[in-house]
Simulated scan of single mutants.
Amino acid sequence: MAGEPQADCLFCKIVAGEVPATIVRETATTVAFRDINPQAPTHVLIIPKVHHPDAAALAAAEPQVVADILCEARKVAAEDGVEETGYRVVFNTGSGAGQTVFHAHLHVLGGRGLQWPPG
């Protein structure tokens, strides 16, 4: 059920403290942690504490949490020193877009040149 923690979800386990992560920020609705396979010097994932399989489902059910995630992205960028030089925020939605963990999450990438369009 959307919104409820999923026993087999890696990100739900991170929220619950069952799987370790390098957490850089946490709010009442979000957790931000370093990606274990970073694609840039700054590569932080920001997830909602509630489980929704992707960004579209999260936006439909809890748009305020999407806003919370985006606000946290700016704070992560500022704390990592990439706010002024530029950073990218990415929601991959669906396996065809590269989503591999089906718990909505936003990537914050920065600290190197980011070409457009991405791969």
Rank of each mutant, 00 (worst) to 15 (best):
residue 1 M to E: 04
residue 4 E to M: 13
residue 5 P to F: 09
residue 5 P to H: 09
residue 5 P to E: 10
residue 6 Q to W: 06
residue 7 A to P: 02
residue 7 A to I: 04
residue 8 D to G: 13
residue 9 C to S: 10
residue 10 L to D: 12
residue 11 F to Q: 15
residue 11 F to N: 14
residue 13 K to V: 01
residue 13 K to F: 01
residue 14 I to W: 07
residue 15 V to L: 11
residue 29 T to Y: 11
residue 29 T to G: 12
residue 32 A to W: 02
residue 33 F to D: 10
residue 36 I to D: 11
residue 40 A to N: 11
residue 42 T to D: 07
residue 42 T to F: 08
residue 43 H to V: 00
residue 44 V to C: 05
residue 45 L to M: 12
residue 45 L to A: 07
residue 47 I to N: 08
residue 47 I to S: 07
residue 51 H to D: 07
residue 51 H to F: 11
residue 52 H to Y: 15
residue 55 A to L: 05
residue 55 A to K: 00
residue 57 A to R: 04
residue 61 A to Y: 08
residue 63 P to V: 04
residue 63 P to A: 09
residue 66 V to A: 13
residue 71 C to T: 14
residue 72 E to W: 00
residue 72 E to M: 14
residue 76 V to I: 02
residue 82 V to C: 07
residue 84 E to T: 05
residue 89 V to S: 12
residue 91 F to R: 00
residue 93 T to Y: 00
residue 93 T to M: 02
residue 95 S to Y: 00
residue 95 S to R: 01
residue 99 Q to G: 10
residue 100 T to R: 15
residue 101 V to R: 00
residue 104 A to K: 04
residue 104 A to M: 03
residue 107 H to P: 05
residue 109 L to Q: 03
residue 112 R to G: 07
residue 112 R to D: 10
residue 114 L to I: 15
residue 119 G to M: 05
